[in-house]
Amino acid sequence: MPSETPQAEVGPTGCPHRSGPHSAKGSLEKGSPEDKEAKEPLWIRPDAPSRCTWQLGRPASESPHHHTAPAKSPKILPDILKKIGDTPMVRINKIGKKFGLKCELLAKCEFFNAGGSVKDRISLRMIEDAERDGTLKPGDTIIEPTSGNTGIGLALAAAVRGYRCIIVMPEKMSSEKVDVLRALGAEIVRTPTNARFDSPESHVGVAWRLKNEIPNSHILDQYRNASNPLAHYDTTADEILQQCDGKLDMLVASVGTGGTITGIARKLKEKCPGCRIIGVDPEGSILAEPEELNQTEQTTYEVEGIGYDFIPTVLDRTVVDKWFKSNDEEAFTFARMLIAQEGLLCGGSAGSTVAVAVKAAQELQEGQRCVVILPDSVRNYMTKFLSDRWMLQKGFLKEEDLTEKKPWWWHLRVQELGLSAPLTVLPTITCGHTIEILREKGFDQAPVVDEAGVILGMVTLGNMLSSLLAGKVQPSDQVGKVIYKQFKQIRLTDTLGRLSHILEMDHFALVV
């Protein structure tokens, strides 16, 4: 994948999101292997301009796509893939009243899908469409860049269908997702969380590099694949309309690839034109409109599966009536509230959605109805927002919020430890010299600072030695090549209790 991002070429006709291997024109390309080798690009942008032909009021008969309808489940399912879809609609009884809503608040519980998330729908649909058009064949390999849930859905379907599955996901995604993927037989590649989507090191860039190296491999490409919004247009939206008897006044959905909100909203605009569509985008993402909503100094966020630093091709923002931004604290607070007060075992993005819903639905009156999409299960986040310690460490809970008995030293300040200034190293000294210094002084790690004293990161003896043994660096290389740029900081005025929580999850903390 090139470091400079080429513009994806656009073909003359058809839909841009065809499933299957992508040609340089962004659509299915038939021909000899030699032709494909000559024409197939190194990668295709996940934010390529959409060429979708959908228009409100256009006859369904003019759609270029294969459409399906929700099917009634048999008493005995032939395999677990038949437990994807037909998820329950559940009334939220307490939270709406707590925040003064007059309307009825309903939750579409997508964590009841077989793999635990709304992404099971698009995973199965992308595979079925690729099999139907002859792209996927027995023994082929599926590769997908994902925040985890699409990966789980694909790995689940691949396990049943017999495909090899490789999932490329950023490091910030939970260990629970990784464990589930491994249990399903998927191979996992992790990428830096802070890598831009168009960087060769991003999950998108690495996935395309693997595709170019592995024979008979395919990126189904949830960011561009029409099967993504079509899955929701054909099934999720129809289920909502049936469950609500066609009567709903507002739908609120958090947005990642945009397939969920695009597919549902398009069908609702056709069948229930008075329904307002509300999009939820986390602070630090750029999906919301108008652009002024996205202006923030924050560039990272903890909530998973929603928000991006690019506009995915499948996201149709014209069908969203209003956007709201959400933050991590309210997302996790509301997710825990949904679990504790409503018994809905949902993930953090569901918290984002409901946090926005109780604001947006203030305009609705008694007798009206708001539906929220709860995308995934708490299963993926047992060591994250479900953990009091994690919430404390991230600053989303305060010590006084917890009532468990603490040891005698818990409320003492870090400054009472009488710490001395640490050994520091410059980023320009060599790895070999740094190892000598650390061994001589008896230290395992040291902060790396520039000549102005600005902290650049941390270097550890173990990481340097393993990097040297693996051949990633040489003793003569500058130590700046092996620094940890993500590390926890703590102030002298913070409590030892807070430091204790940090050290339970990290090997060190830097006192500043």
Rank of each mutant, 00 (worst) to 15 (best):
V189L: 11
P88V: 05
K177G: 00
T13R: 03
A69I: 04
D79N: 11
I264K: 04
E176V: 01
L251E: 04
L251G: 03
S202W: 00
K36C: 15
T68V: 13
V10E: 11
R182D: 05
S19N: 05
L105S: 04
N228T: 01
A8Y: 10
K97C: 05
I122G: 00
A159R: 13
C109Y: 06
D238Y: 10
A8G: 08
I261G: 03
L28D: 10
D179P: 05
G153C: 02
G256S: 01
Y223L: 02
I152K: 00
A69E: 12
F112Y: 06
R91I: 06
P21N: 15
R190Q: 06
L81Q: 07
C103Y: 01
P2V: 09
A265V: 06
F112C: 01
K72Q: 11
A237W: 01
R91F: 08
Q7H: 12
P88Y: 03
G256N: 00
I80P: 02
E29Y: 12
F99R: 04
R190V: 07
G153E: 01
E4Y: 11
P33M: 10
I80W: 01
R18G: 12
H232E: 00
V160N: 05
K119M: 00
T235S: 14
L101D: 01
V160R: 15
E201D: 14
L28I: 14
N228Q: 01
L220T: 00
Q7N: 09
K39G: 04
T68P: 12
A48N: 11
G31Y: 05
A231C: 11
G256E: 00
N225M: 00
I261L: 07
A237G: 12
D47A: 05
S23F: 12
E104V: 12
R125S: 12
S123G: 05
R224G: 07
S227Y: 12
V118S: 07
D35C: 03
A158Y: 01
A155G: 08
S23H: 10
R209D: 03
P70H: 10
G246Y: 07
W54I: 06
T146Q: 02
A8F: 09
P64T: 02
F99W: 14
V178P: 07
D221E: 09
P64S: 04
R58K: 15
K108C: 00
H65T: 07
P138R: 15
S61P: 14
P215N: 04
K75F: 06
E29G: 12
Q222D: 02
A183V: 03
S3N: 10
R196I: 09
L77M: 13
T13D: 09
F111W: 05
P70G: 11
L241G: 08
P59L: 15
R18S: 12
G148S: 05
D221P: 03
D120H: 06
E128C: 03
E187V: 07
F197T: 06
S147D: 02
V90H: 00
N113D: 06
P145T: 05
L154I: 04
C103L: 05
G259A: 03
G100M: 06
K25G: 09
P41L: 13
A253I: 03
S123V: 02
E270L: 11
A159E: 08
T236V: 02
R91Q: 07
R91N: 14
A159L: 04
I264E: 02
G11M: 03
P70Q: 11
S254D: 02
L156A: 02
T13W: 02
L184R: 02
C272G: 09
N216H: 11
T191W: 01
T260F: 00
V178L: 04
T53P: 07
R58C: 09
G11F: 05
A24D: 08
C103G: 13
L56F: 14
E34M: 09
C52D: 00
T193H: 09
P200E: 08
S202H: 05
P88S: 11
T68L: 14
C275K: 01
D79I: 07
D140R: 07
M250N: 00
K97S: 15
A155I: 01
E104G: 12
D198I: 06
V204N: 08
D120W: 07
I240V: 14
T135C: 03
